[in-house]
Amino acid sequence: MLKRKDLLGLRDLGRDEIIEILDTAKEMKKKIDNPALRDCTLGKSSIITLFYENSTRTRMSFMLAGSYLGGIVQDLGVAASSVSKGESLIDTGLNLDKMGVRFMIMRHQMTGAAAVLARNVNASVINAGDGTNEHPTQALLDMYTIRDYLGGFEGLKVVILGDISHSRVARSNAFGLVKLGAEVTLAGPSTLVSGSMKSLGVNVTSDIKGALADADVVMGLRVQFERQKNMPFPNTREYSTLYGINSSMLNYAKKDALVMHPGPVNRGVEFASDIIDGPNSVINIQVKNGVAVRMAILKLLYEAGASTDR
């Protein structure tokens, strides 16, 4: 059984813990389709979402997950709160602690922010993405989807493409998939994927065709286009020409390879539109599984807390 206060990343999770979350998510999924099955698993625990970086989709997914299990869910509204008046993360956390918050679900632009919050508060902290570190619930929902379609992970070839070095999704997936026996390849332009990522136990390459060969799963990552001084590639057009996946590129992968993307997709950049809407794509299914996985995590952390007398 999951025995921890917080869920900060897949780096620290054991193989069995990951399986337990995925198994629990399978049960939870029924509650999404059938409101009659929704209950008060979380016993009216209060759940706060703190999104220092905006993401409507992830935030809504967590808020729905919490309410389907009978939690009382609030969003802190970081932009409108004392945070914007310069309150420190730790002070914000301590205040919420005092007010009886049981779960703090945080997205933050800085690596390690969830860990810092977690060690300063009594509440359970769930990392909804921290800097360039981890996005564990996204990876768990990706893994849930992969297992659902392909039956397991052992020996699977998973290719993750795009802006690897800035991607917490790629990192969390790599940590989790490697633990469960998949062969993971991170691929992208040399300026967006660093050889030091090999320390995660993955292959690293800029050869996109080689990476795609016989792949079971092709996961695209959103490429960020904010104007920056030192762009890692010349322009979007060149990126999509060299690293975008269209149907002829997809032919290098296995015939029924899964096409995945954490969203939101830049159509015609990471994937051509016919791939996003094509038979291999499970992009829309990922979204539903996201709610189930987040319900599972809330339930397991709640039960872990109840059993350890906090």
């Binding site: 690596t111 390690g112 360039t132 570190n133 990192r171 660093s194 030091s196 090999k198 320390s199 995660l200």
Partner: peptide
């Protein structure tokens, strides 16, 4: 960058 570039930074997700 926040810490030395290399395997440990890659592992921790901090810019090197």
């Amino acid at each position: 960058g926040q810490m030395n570039a290399g395997a440990q930074a890659a592992y921790m997700g901090l810019a090197g």
